[in-house]
Design a protein around this nucleic acid. Sequence first.
DNA 1: AGAATAGTGTCTTTCAGACATTATGTT
DNA 2: AACATAATGTCTGAAAGACACTATTCT
Lengths: 234, 234
Amino acid sequence: MAAKKYDETKYPPFAVTADLVVLTLREGRLCVLLIQRGGSPFEGQWALPGGFTHVDEDIEAAAYRELAEEAGVGERDVVLEQLRTYGAPNRDERMRVVSVAWLALGADLPEARAGSDAADARWVPVEEALSQDLAFDHREILTDGLERGRAKLEYSSLATAFVREPFTVGELREVYEAVWGTRIDPRNFHRKVTGAEDFLAETGARTARGGGRPAMLYVVGPATQLHPPVLRRG
Amino acid sequence: MAAKKYDETKYPPFAVTADLVVLTLREGRLCVLLIQRGGSPFEGQWALPGGFTHVDEDIEAAAYRELAEEAGVGERDVVLEQLRTYGAPNRDERMRVVSVAWLALGADLPEARAGSDAADARWVPVEEALSQDLAFDHREILTDGLERGRAKLEYSSLATAFVREPFTVGELREVYEAVWGTRIDPRNFHRKVTGAEDFLAETGARTARGGGRPAMLYVVGPATQLHPPVLRRG
DNA sequence: AGAATAGTGTCTTTCAGACATTATGTT
DNA sequence: AACATAATGTCTGAAAGACACTATTCT
């Protein structure tokens, strides 16, 4: 087969967006960042933060940029992981848009503030966010992001993204309890995470906040996988 | 904030491709479908099958279409799962291309035949495919696809995508051994998969191929998750 | 001393991993 | 009967889950 000249006009134009499921814990509850749309379509409705990728910009860089612009969150404040790409032909009425969705997890992220295109921005407990209509297919994206996050806690060190270092075993357990919405036996949990190879690294320091025995403080160990896993159900 | 008119020219054009990691077992070896590029760039080099998404086409439909055009594989023959999206600015020299990669698993797929844009097509054992230079960032995509497939065997029923129904426990074990490149104790494996709730459904029928005790034949059960999981390492 | 919170220990059941034996077909 | 392959059984150690106790601080 002969080599042929490439004709750019043959290939149809798409817009590519980065949409973000940003999760954090606020007062022991798992919350997602939602922004209220300032313009059409879906004006006034709540949506996930996100926006268009520039033509010379890496898709991951676009996610970080939107995180900064729309959530005021810097690269160092979160763990970012690609979630999935959504590309139904009519998911955006304006034009053909393919959305690369990302999951961003952070510890105690700052109070939401509305970015350029947003009328408002707030942290919403995830059950509440799922119980309302969101713009576009953002409800599906949020559902997928939550399931991914919950599943990854089992076998990875992702839970540590939700706490600031150094942290205690009890704080880490509260992460699991908040994300899964379950109770975990503190004694078995302690045995498990301190026993897992390279998962936690002792700092030697202890908490000093009064009202009880001080807790040992840990930082994240070199392991990215948690073996054996912490299982959600019996 | 006032509603503003949407200006399509503000948003830069991307091309969106569907690239496929198509895996099957051939003679007990895990193989991936590679095509030899007929045109530039990377003319003559081996690459994953794939192509451009049409502007009115769902991204998953594009994956199925490319699967049919470039691999001669129908929707019913494979399990298709989205892998990840690759969008570095210069991954394609011709223009800005974002590639949505898919993982397709099938049982005993047909002999490869070159599609429209391909000079050649063949099934290549995965280790061999990884040891050569592939076009674009396809080596990275293949690596990610293999890791995803291997990981999902542990806790899902994905392995059944590699066998035709009805199948024996031994055939299913051979899938795990080929994909993981390990040996598995047949007795422990049998106990595990037959004990897992809703994972396999007995047909009542048995093999009749001679030379030994006939094996029970199973079809896939209603469970999509495998609990407890089959673990790769001790 | 008492309250509060952190950490350790024990028992039982389940399951993984190693290995031997029995079952059911063909030639 | 010999052979070949499938299925089941047993033992041991690791880890999960339930539960009680000890340790260290502050007031």
